[in-house]
Design a protein around this nucleic acid. Structure first.
Lengths: 233, 233
DNA sequence: AATCAAGCAATTATCGATAATTCCTCAATT
DNA sequence: AATTGAGGAATTATCGATAATTGCTTGATT
């Protein structure tokens, strides 16, 4: 398990790893992240764990309660709806601007990341859940769509929202509900509309893409959770 | 100078203080923030300084270069323009939604924070630069405008952008250029349009308010900085 | 003079230990 | 039975020291 730190700094490495673990649902939403346990797990002192967790807390992937430690961020219907609305708007804007301003290098990146994603999708046929490779390829493709928007801040915000969304997506695995959906086709459509520089249609397609995912997620994973709280009364 | 920590935790207290110092331009943009010096300044160990700085780094107010420490975030024409564009959009959206969804308590908050701001503006007549009280009142008023939008994430993003903007604003002091501008009147208009629930006009006014500030800032403070770099060639 | 490398000083990153706080248990009281 | 409060265990927050890294200075080399 001894990991060789490729990162410039130990903390950066742990931060990346921990983010990946959280996004792939190794720790359930709301569950505590104990310093001692993680310290042992990663073979580093509590200081570097703590610093990594502080960073994740600022990114809203974990929550810090003073003197009570860190927990994985909670999930909820309302939050997913909020998240999706903002994502449609901001990631849509980033896409629109990329289409308007992106150069040929950008086009190439869209095409190439889509190609990798398409391959991952073919390989995945009938697989149980979301593969780590597919998730990475998926994130890379969506990132490419907006990366030429020209605004570092917008890119950063979009990435943050995307990470938060991933928390929900992983929850469903490859949900049964998704059988009715041709996700590869949606991605191909997005790639073509971006490549062919059709801003309105592309933004529209992106919005539908997100909304569909959210709707399925809402009915599949978060179907209940309407009352004030789960149980214990 | 011994500060009594009202915060739940020492780090939180230092984080707040440091944020305030950076936003009020105690340290110039780009200047290094040395752990030992700050540690001495605040009378705490380097660990809590470091944690506070890590948080600020995630909020884009400072920058961390691995093994080279922390610096106050740099400023630039392009960044200010980017920032303003995003602020107009996001803070405008928050305002629109607050007008649509805010209850009477929200209205009251808008009116009351505006009242405090107006008082601070009157008191400030002829003062040299931006007062700390005025800055606080100003931030509180703008915060109130968007706080009822119903999206915690949007509120958080808007606050982050507002903090970054403050970095620029403080740079100008009460610039000479502002004499031609009736800022109190702009604020009053905003308050009235929000209070009277006129979304389109309010959002429009907010956009103009930001754009004016930025335009003046651009010509007053960041007039040069067109070439590749200041000097040293 | 310019370049380069070795050594040194300053600074950051990491560690392990201590202090402070919270949470749980359980007995005492009502 | 429910509530309260005092202990004690578990956990977080803070500290000071050590290790690692960077960057500067200086002296050797061309």
């Amino acid at each position: 398990m001894a990991t060789q730190p490729r990162s410039a700094t130990l903390t950066a490495h742990v931060h990346e790893q921990l983010r990946a673990e959280i996004l792939s649902n190794v720790y359930a939403p709301g569950s505590p992240l104990r310093l001692a346990a993680l310290s042992k797990h990663y073979g580093t002192s509590m200081s570097v764990i703590r610093e990594a967790l502080v960073r994740l807390a600022e990114q809203h992937l974990v929550v810090l309660l003073p003197n009570q430690g860190f927990r994985v961020a909670e999930i909820s219907r309302e939050d997913l709806i909020d998240l999706t609305e903002l994502r449609i708007m901001l990631e849509g804007l980033a896409l629109r601007r990329s289409i308007e301003r992106g150069d040929m290098e950008w086009e190439a990146k869209v095409v190439s990341t889509h190609h990798i994603l398409e391959r991952a999708e073919l390989h995945r046929e009938g697989e149980p859940g979301t593969t780590a490779e597919w998730s990475a390829a998926h994130a890379a493709f969506h990132d490419a769509l907006g990366v030429a928007c020209g605004s570092p801040r917008l890119i950063s915000m979009v990435r943050g929202l995307r990470d938060s969304s991933e928390l929900y997506r992983q929850l469903s695995g490859t949900g049964e509900a998704e059988v009715k959906r041709d996700i590869p086709a949606e991605h191909r459509e997005l790639m073509e509309l971006a490549r062919d520089r059709r801003p309105d249609e592309a933004v529209e397609a992106l919005g539908r893409h997100f909304q569909r995912t959210t709707d399925l997620l809402l009915q599949a994973v978060l179907a209940d959770e309407a009352g004030p709280a789960p149980a214990m009364y």
